[in-house]
Design a protein around this nucleic acid. Structure first.
Lengths: 172, 172, 172, 172
DNA sequence: GATGAATGAGCTTTCATTCAT
DNA sequence: GATGAATGAAAGCTCATTCAT
């Protein structure tokens, strides 16, 4: 990636996250990036190509985010770690998530990341001898999702209170 | 509302919910509605006017949805009722919610409905002598939101299991 | 076809014939037609759609051009009539032919018109007991083509001399 | 000419012949040539410069093609030779001709080559005491043109039959 | 000589909107 | 109320061309 290509990438990420993909014109992106409009198409072929590039890069980062969980074995520790994720999102990850979340109704984002997470959670609840571990996992992920949306929308500062509240609810 | 006006309204609601507001052209709406494109502007002035009309109609329906709660007094009953809302959304309400949720990052929807709900929840938790009733309310609404997103995205059939799971978590 | 649609059609035909399809911009067409550029796409969907429309209309006219031949029976009369076609092209047909001829290398114009003509010519030469009537027909059509190109390029005024020359060559 | 320059030249010739000059982008040429796009402009200054280079090279080859005719004296031999040209085009000359022919409506190719040919033909017919040798020459060249187009379009294998047919027609 | 990043003008196309009928 | 022809601005995209390396 050249410097300007990165500039485009960053500007697009920022704008897609703020205004949404459809509402952001390539012209606006190029201006924000301080770059000619044509360059977007040279580097990313399409507006959609630019989006895909962002989604891919996003998934890479997110995979790294959950890798540490693979080494954990104790179920409660795993769940604790998973539920902490929304509250520990770094600033540069937030925009990726915002793009993901704003598009998931329209596109069929194959969210490998998500599936992996669900598996981990399921096996954890299973190991904890939950009678209906599948439903419990589903509820858990649903709340996880709620937490994520909450963090992305509100930029809360004292979110750790909510976090601890959730730990209590799941007896972690 | 004339018949054709309703047709436009319904088509727009459906398409906005599926593809998003920005991604839906007035042309597509008119085709879906079996109506000339110009008629949209005669009845709703704008594309934005059409959206506003939908949002308003949505809010009306949603207000009706929470009116019964006003008559409730017992805190647990209130919370039980509130948390049940996402799982009792009727089919024709879903699309309104989808439009709401897809727009909340971009527009500043003054969600009177939402505020009312939060107040109710807060007073309920306060009445239940929660030490930090504000945080508890926030967590509650966050989960409520997660449930809503969950229902809107997945169209789950056995969602009552999740519902009962939540009741347990809040000891309701 | 509305008046403006016809205007677009006529301007496009003229410009495609003069400068070629690729070298003519939709902007130029709209200006020549005294019409907004968007209207082209409303009526013809595409620049290519506009071209197709022209090609179709062209074929219709050309079919009418050869219909009289169907009623002819005497071989020599048929051939005489066919070979006269290039020299009797009306002014408004010329541009159609120019567009046809400039595109036949690039597109696969299925020239029903042409095939029909060849059949007629073949059966005529067959009826005249030519030993190798197929080759003779091919040569005939090749010369026919040359005459057509000649007329389209040069706008000759005394072309009837050439015409009579050809009659002699084929002993018609 | 360096190797890469030749590669550009060859690719451009091929593509101009197949798709036309306007429809061929410098990018496509560079890709076909396996060369950077910028190199085209270093070697040929312009896209138009590249075209001119091709046209010049073409004319050179074509001049060589008719040089043998200069030494001929007998009218019939001359005409026989001229009419044979389209049927003896070598494979590597065809694309030059295709480019010539696709451009002759738009550009004013001063076809020195062509003029020379016409002169030769005229003097031949004059020497043969044709009453209207000018018209006869024009008809001859028209048919010559038809033959050329025929060969360029159809890639015929048994074209010598057509050739002999033409010889008969002109009593050669 | 050769590359490839970068540009800006101009292209095709879409879209919300207007207006005569 | 309803249509659909028409518009103009702006969108996405292509293209020939330049230039630093």
């Amino acid at each position: 990636m050249t410097e300007k290509q990165q500039e485009i990438f960053k500007s697009a990420l920022k704008l897609f996250a703020k205004q949404g993909y459809q509402a952001t014109s390539t012209r606006t992106i190029s201006q924000e990036a301080g770059v000619s409009e044509g360059l977007i198409f040279r580097h990313f072929k399409n507006k959609e190509g630019l989006l895909k590039s962002i989604l891919q890069e996003g998934q890479k980062k997110l995979k790294k985010m959950i890798q540490p969980i693979d080494n954990l074995t104790h179920p409660k520790v795993i769940l604790k770690h998973v539920i902490s994720l929304p509250f520990n999102i770094t600033k540069d990850q937030k925009d990726f998530w915002r793009v993901f979340y704003s598009l998931r109704r329209q596109m069929n984002l194959d969210f490998i990341f998500f599936d992996q997470l669900i598996k981990k959670v399921k096996s954890a609840f299973k190991a904890m001898d939950f009678s209906d571990y599948i439903s419990e996992s589903e509820a858990f992920m649903m709340i996880w999702d709620g937490a994520m949306v909450y963090v992305l929308l509100n930029n809360p500062k004292n979110s750790y209170i909510i976090y601890e509240n959730l730990l209590q609810k799941f007896d972690l």
